[in-house]
Design a protein around this nucleic acid. Sequence first.
DNA 1: TTGTTGATTTCGCAA
DNA 2: TTGCGAAGTCAACAA
Lengths: 219, 219
Amino acid sequence: MRLVIARCSVDYVGRLTAHLPLATRLLMIKADGSVLVHSDGGSYKPLNWMSPPCVLREDEGVWTVTNKAGEQLLITIEEVLSDVSADLGVDPGLVKDGVEAHLQALLAQHCEKLGEGFRLVRREYPTDIGPVDLLCRDADGQAVAIEIKRRGEIDGVEQLARYVERLDRDPLLRPVRGMFVAQEIKPQAKVLAGDRGIVCIEVDYDELRGIDTSADRLF
Amino acid sequence: MRLVIARCSVDYVGRLTAHLPLATRLLMIKADGSVLVHSDGGSYKPLNWMSPPCVLREDEGVWTVTNKAGEQLLITIEEVLSDVSADLGVDPGLVKDGVEAHLQALLAQHCEKLGEGFRLVRREYPTDIGPVDLLCRDADGQAVAIEIKRRGEIDGVEQLARYVERLDRDPLLRPVRGMFVAQEIKPQAKVLAGDRGIVCIEVDYDELRGIDTSADRLF
DNA sequence: TTGTTGATTTCGCAA
DNA sequence: TTGCGAAGTCAACAA
C-alpha cells in the first residue's frame, strides 16, 4: 500500500462524471491497483475512487487510473506533501456475528416461537418472483409465509404481500397467510401489514440466541 | 488526518459483533475523530470503522473508539510500523452530473423512441400521489404514463401502477396505459409489470445521448 | 427531527 | 458468471 498526501484535483469519467476541485487530500493506492481519494472528514466512503481491477499510470503531475470498462479517474497533482509505502500482506478477513442470516437460522430452528404448533416446511421457499424466507404450517395445518428482517420497513411488507399472493395461487398451499417478523417493526410497516392482513411479530435476537445456547448446553 | 500502519487486531461491538485477527493494517484517523481500518485490497469499504461523531481514547497498546450509541471499536496494537500526520483542511467537495435526470430530458425530447407517433403531453405530470415522469399520447391519441429509471426494479413498477390507477380515474385521460422505461430492467420487475399490464422498454443511454449530440451538431 | 430514496452503492451467496 | 437480497449499509433530500 502506498499513501500519498498531495494537493490535487480529480476527475472521474465513467458511469457518471464528477469533479473535485484543487485541495489537499489523501491518495491511497492499494496492492491491486485500486485508488481511493479521501478527505479529512465525512464517512468511510472516499470522495472518489476506482475499484479493482484497474491500472494506474503515473505521468509527470498526472495520474490516470483506468478499468476494463474504460472508466477513468484523472488525478492532477500540484504538490506532494508526503509519500510512504508499506507491505501489508493479505488480510485474514472479518468474522461477523448477529446479522439477518443468523436470525433466519435461529427462527427456522425455533419456529414454535412464532406461533404454537408451528412446523417448518422449508427455508427459502421458492416462488417465481423470488424465495420467501420461511414457509411453515400452523397448528391447524394452514400454510404461513414468513418474511424475516432485521428491521421491518414498508418494503418488506410489500415484498411479503407479493409472495403471499403468488403462493395463494397454489392449490396445495391455499389459503396462505403472511407473517412479518423483525427485531423492530416501524409503525408505518405495521399499518400496511394490517391492511394486507399480515401479522407482525417483533422478536428478541438475544433471547433467541439464549434459547439456542441453553439448548446446546443441555449436553 | 493521521495515518498509522500497525500490526493490530480489531473488535467491533455494536449493531453486530465482528473480529479482525492480528495482521498489518492501515489505521486512518480523521479530524472528526472517526477511524477507518483498511487492508491492502478489497474495495473502498474499510474492514472496520467507526463513524463520526465518536471519541478515540489512546491507551498503552489499546485504542478505544466509542460513539454516542455506545458502540465500540477496540484496536489492540502490537507494533507500529509508521505514523504520519497531515493537516488537510476542509474539502470543497464533489461536483456530480446525474444520469437519470438526463435520461428523462432526452426521452422527453425524443419520445418517438418509445413508440411510433408518440407525442409529449408534459414532463412531471402531477397526480395527487406525486408526479409521473412523462405523460404522452400514442399514435391513436391514447394516454401513456411513463416512469423512467436508470435501473428498473420492482418498486418502480409498483410506483407506476399506482400512478396509472390514479390517472385512469380522470375522464379526460381514461383509458391510461403504463410504460416502464429503464436502461436495464430486472426479470422480476418484468414479471410484475406483465401482471399489471405495463409495457417494459429498455433504452440505450449512450445511443440517446448520441442522437441528441448529432441533432445539436446539425447547426 | 424523521422518513424516504438513490448509490460509480459494496458484499455475499446461490443457481 | 449472473442475479438477487442484505448492509453496522451511507448519504442526500423532503416533510
